[in-house]
Write a protein that binds this DNA or RNA. Structure first.
Lengths: 262, 262
DNA sequence: CGTTCCCTTGACACCGATCAACTCTGGTGG
DNA sequence: CCACCAGAGTTGATCGGTGTCAAGGGAACG
């Protein structure tokens, strides 16, 4: 929300107020965890973010069935992939954090088989298809890193299936929070096990295959057990180990590269 | 099951008894639906299937945590990706049909974050990593096609999340059957809306986030509504449109290429 | 001809959905 | 500055889809 104040520096949130390519650093951070990127690689990534577009919250970034001309990269804010079912209910299939691509598949698959929604106000980089497709040729290590990111996305999808298919509500919520904690950390947006979580209970419900009412009750359990504090769009994990234990969370599926291992 | 009878031809199941590269034709058929493959491309694919290994049913092809030396490609029989949860229950995250790769990701991600199980006796081609990775360089169209297959797999994962998260049991089963119908058709294993479905009710349950008992009752509903016949490991869809309507099935997520559209 | 899977059936319990009202908060405009 | 309003969170009562437990049946296989 706090936007480009050019010269003066806000001492409270120094990270947020870099000139606009700041969001692009999320991608750099993420991919650096997977591959050994040279400075030229990083520059090439930053160069992708020249064209930026802003979206208001609760608004489609890409609708189902569209054939976007550009690849979209989340720079700031949160997004979600979703699909609307016959009966009108909605299922979210992924949360998109800064550094995540929205639609690398479109150049090959042709059209979107799901929609992408801005959950908050968001900045998105628009990148021409061919700039992405030619990257691997020019910078093989980057190609590897992008490939890695795609495969991790796939692994996350699998873990969601497991989560929704075989865990009860409290564990589901806990698992989601653990995943988001790990992913936010990877892009440098976690401090003291605390991070922005601008999700309504309805959105959480749509991601976990639950109803808002039940998510509400479940959150109260987690709070009562002193596992989390969730207030004002900010999540604090009070007991990381306890939450992981409850969730049965094992971060192996995120495949953080050797460089990233703490 | 029926194996390489060299000279004589069995008139009942002529497809099955070609010399061993037969299974490899499934991959060729699948990829031909997505890209305009030259004969050389197809030959290159067939050349991948030189080394074949057989697995007994109900046996791991690859275990979670392993780092297989080769890429595995299903030639015959059915497989499943699965993950075992803390409480001991199992969730299947994908069915692997002939023509599907088991673990293209391993060269990049390093180790398996889930296991792969042979559901039936299966023949699997073992392919050296570098033979896969160099394919795109030598035959760009093949690279595109493989990329397409990966992205479709991802789309299928998303549709599973929707299915498990937002549909009731009967619709879930129906949707799964519609998907398998479409995928089996794509590799040429459907005749008259009938195909092998060697899945126990327990396996179906583990794929859909249900219990075997409930799958049993659900199947009885589908049978009572004259939508399907499922017997002896063979599924016949009596009313394709009706089943799709019940399931809310839209095959757009399978992204069949232009060539494949009937 | 027994053993082993797998399918089937019934009774019952429970998690989460549904419906409906109420509270709280932040934002807007008078 | 306060009244109002919309969106989000909260709560309670009740319903229903699935899970659980347990027993029995049927077909394939050695």
């Amino acid at each position: 929300m706090a936007a480009r104040q050019p010269a003066r520096v806000d001492p409270i949130e120094p990270v947020r107020i870099k000139p606009h390519p700041a969001g692009c650093e999320r991608l750099v951070a993420k991919l650096s965890a997977a591959a050994d990127l040279a400075e030229e690689d990083k520059e090439a990534l930053r160069a992708l973010c020249s064209q930026v577009r802003e979206f208001a919250g609760k608004r489609d970034i890409i609708g189902e069935g569209e054939k976007p001309e550009n690849v979209h990269l989340m720079l700031e804010g949160w997004g979600a992939r979703y699909k609307v079912v016959e009966d009108g209910s909605r299922q979210i299939t992924a949360f998109l954090l800064p550094g995540d691509f929205c639609d690398v598949h479109v150049p090959i698959l042709g059209e979107m088989d799901h929609g992408i929604l801005a959950l908050t106000a968001a900045k998105v980089a628009l990148i021409a298809h061919d700039r992405i497709t030619e990257l691997p040729r020019k910078r093989p290590e980057l190609g590897r890193a992008l490939w890695w990111a795609t495969l991790v996305d796939e692994a996350v999808l699998r873990s969601w299936i497991v989560n929704i298919g075989r865990r009860e509500a409290a564990q589901r919520v806990a698992h989601l929070f653990c995943e988001l904690h790990a992913r936010m950390k990877l892009v440098g947006l976690v401090e003291d096990d605390q991070f922005d979580l601008p999700l309504t209970q309805e959105v959480i419900a749509d991601a976990l295959g639950l109803t808002p009412v039940h998510v509400n009750r479940t959150l109260q359990h987690l709070r009562a057990d002193n596992l989390i504090v969730l207030k004002g769009g900010e999540l604090t994990i009070l007991d990381v180990e306890g939450l992981k234990r409850l969730a049965g969370f094992d971060d192996n599926y995120l495949h953080r590269g050797l460089l990233a291992r703490e």
